[in-house]
Design a protein around this nucleic acid. Structure first.
Length: 307
DNA sequence: ATGGACCCTTGAT
DNA sequence: ATCAAGGGTCCA
C-alpha cells in the first residue's frame, strides 16, 4: 500500500441533484454511522473498504479518495446512487396526494438511501438499540479501531464476523457496547461460519430476508428493516422507530398505534419506496418540521416520578 | 399482546 | 451525585 495522499476533489455527475441539507442528513442522520463531519458541509469516513471525503457543492457533491484506491470511485457511485435510480422510485411515492410527505420531501431534496455493505449495516444497527446516533458512531468507531483492518489514512474498516466472534467480552465491552456485546458476538458466531450469507440472503424475497435477519440475536423488527433497507437496498422496507412513531402519530393522526400497525400503514400507504418516505419523514421529524410535533429542544417531560 | 429489564453514556437537575 | 432517556430486543 503506497503512502496514501488524497486525490484532488472531483465532482460527481449526479443524475438527480442533492441539496446540502439532504447530504448532511444522509451522512449524519443515522443511516450509516461511519462518517464524521470535518468542517461544515464536509465529511470523512469509511464505506466498505474504502475511505473517502465528500463535500457539498451547491446541488452537487464533490469527493476525494486515497490515491492508491482505484476502486473507490465506482464504489462511491453506487453507494450514493449517483445514477439517480432512487429519484425515479420517489416519483411513485404518494406526494401528490399526501401534503405531509410532500413537505417532508421538499425539506431535503434529493435525499437518498445509502447503499451500504450488508455487514456494515448489520453491525451498525446491532449497536443501535437504546442509543443515540452520536453514541452509535462511537461504538462502531471503537470496533473498527480495535478489531478492523486498516484501510489507509489512519482509518479502519469494520471487523469481519470472524474477528468479532473471536473477540473477548472485555474488548467488546471496552467499545461501549454494553449488553449489545452479546448481540454482536451471538450474531458473529452464526455468520462467521457462513461467509457467503449476504450473497445468499440477497437472493431472497424481502419477507424471507427479514425473517432470516430476525433469526439473528439482537435483530428485531426495527433492526431487520434497517438492515434490509440500508444494507440490501430493499427500498420497500419501512423501519418503525421512536421518531416515526411520533411522526405518524402526530402528522397522520395515528395515535396509539403500535409498531406492527404502523409498519403496515407505511408499507401500504407508501408502497415500493416506503423506506425513502421513511427517511424523509424521519429527517423532517428530527428537524422539527412536521405538523403536530414539538420542536426538539428540551427533551420530553418525564411521565412520572418514582420515589 | 403488553410490560419491564437490560449496559452504558450523556445531558439536565 | 442523581436521574431520565436513548433509530430496541428479549423474555415473562
Amino acid at each position: 500500500m503506497p503512502p496514501a495522499g488524497w486525490t484532488p476533489w472531483r465532482r460527481l455527475d449526479l443524475a438527480c441533484g442533492l441539496s446540502s441539507g439532504a447530504l448532511a442528513e444522509q451522512m449524519d442522520g443515522g443511516q450509516a454511522f461511519r462518517w464524521s463531519q470535518q468542517s461544515p458541509g464536509e465529511w470523512t469516513g469509511v464505506f466498505g473498504r474504502h475511505v473517502a471525503r465528500v463535500r457539498s457543492a451547491g446541488e452537487k457533491v464533490e469527493w476525494s479518495g486515497l490515491s492508491g484506491d482505484s476502486a473507490a470511485e465506482s464504489a462511491l457511485l453506487i453507494y450514493l446512487d449517483v445514477a439517480g435510480e432512487q429519484a425515479r422510485l420517489a416519483e411513485a411515492l404518494p406526494w401528490r396526494s399526501d401534503a405531509v410527505l410532500r413537505a417532508a420531501m421538499s425539506a431535503h431534496p434529493g435525499l437518498r438511501i445509502l447503499r451500504q455493505d450488508p455487514s456494515d449495516a448489520l453491525l451498525g444497527f446491532l449497536c443501535s438499540s437504546n442509543k443515540r446516533i452520536s453514541q452509535i458512531r462511537v461504538m462502531v468507531a471503537s470496533l473498527a479501531r480495535e478489531l478492523g483492518p486498516p484501510v489507509g489514512a489512519g482509518h479502519h474498516a469494520l471487523p469481519g464476523w470472524g474477528e468479532l466472534a473471536r473477540a473477548d467480552d472485555r474488548t467488546l465491552r471496552a467499545c461501549a457496547l454494553g449488553y449489545r456485546a452479546d448481540y454482536v458476538r451471538g450474531t458473529a458466531r452464526l455468520l462467521a461460519r457462513r461467509p457467503d450469507w449476504a450473497a445468499e440472503w440477497s437472493r431472497l424475497e424481502t419477507p424471507a430476508l427479514l425473517e432470516r435477519l430476525r433469526s439473528l440475536p439482537g435483530v428485531g423488527p426495527k433492526v431487520a428493516a434497517c438492515v434490509a433497507l440500508f444494507g440490501f437496498g430493499r427500498l420497500e422496507c419501512f423501519p418503525v422507530d421512536t421518531w416515526i412513531v411520533q411522526a405518524l402519530s402526530a402528522a397522520y393522526g395515528l395515535k396509539g398505534w403500535n409498531a406492527v400497525r404502523l409498519e403496515e400503514f407505511g408499507r401500504v400507504h407508501f408502497g415500493a419506496a416506503a423506506g425513502l418516505a421513511q427517511q424523509h419523514l424521519f429527517a423532517a421529524a428530527r428537524a422539527g418540521l412536521l405538523p403536530g410535533l414539538p420542536v426538539r429542544k428540551a427533551r420530553a417531560p418525564r411521565p412520572k416520578s418514582r420515589g
